[in-house]
Amino acid sequence: MKPVGERGEDWFTSIYATHYPDIVRYGIRRLRDADAAAELAQDVFVVAWRRRSEVPERPLPWLYTVARHTLANRWRHGRSQPTPLPLADANQVPGRLVEPEALASIVDLRRALRALPEADQEILRLVGWEDLSVGDAAVVLGCSRSAAAVRLFRARRRLRSVLAASTPVPDSRPASAHV
């Protein structure tokens, strides 16, 4: 447990306390249950400690990168994967009171998002949900800032096209059925 430079247990405890919830939320957005998201977060921070000399001063984009790689590796090598991207689940609605019209639009939005290519979905999630800047999203995606900006622009355009083309959801249930 030798520290690298100043990066000892105190440093790690600080970033763990600060960013553990962020990584769990990242997992919740891409996995099917909170247990799997918590597992993912633990794995990410195990990597963070082992590679602590590489963790930048602003660690969150780097941690998201590790989370993204961890998920991809599970898919690729495990095949028995945590199932990601539950975006089209009509039953998965916010756990708070939502007006029926708003609920329908959320279901439509998730379905539209799922209809996009995975690369489009990811840049939209990183900016729209993880609240990253384009520059930080570029770090996560391993591309240049300008490339990420173009991806985001095109993904947003495609999302709007899908939304515009979608018809009302026939099986969306009233909010009272869920809340």
């Binding site: 939320r25 990242y26 919740i28 957005r29 539950p86 975006l87 998965q92 916010p94 708003a102 639009s105 959320i106 939005l109 998730r110 998002l113 939209l124 999630r125 729209g128 949900w129 947003r156 999302l159």
Partner: peptide
């Protein structure tokens, strides 16, 4: 646009 649909 996406915020309201955020599962987390």
């Amino acid at each position: 646009l996406l915020g309201p649909a955020d599962p987390a």
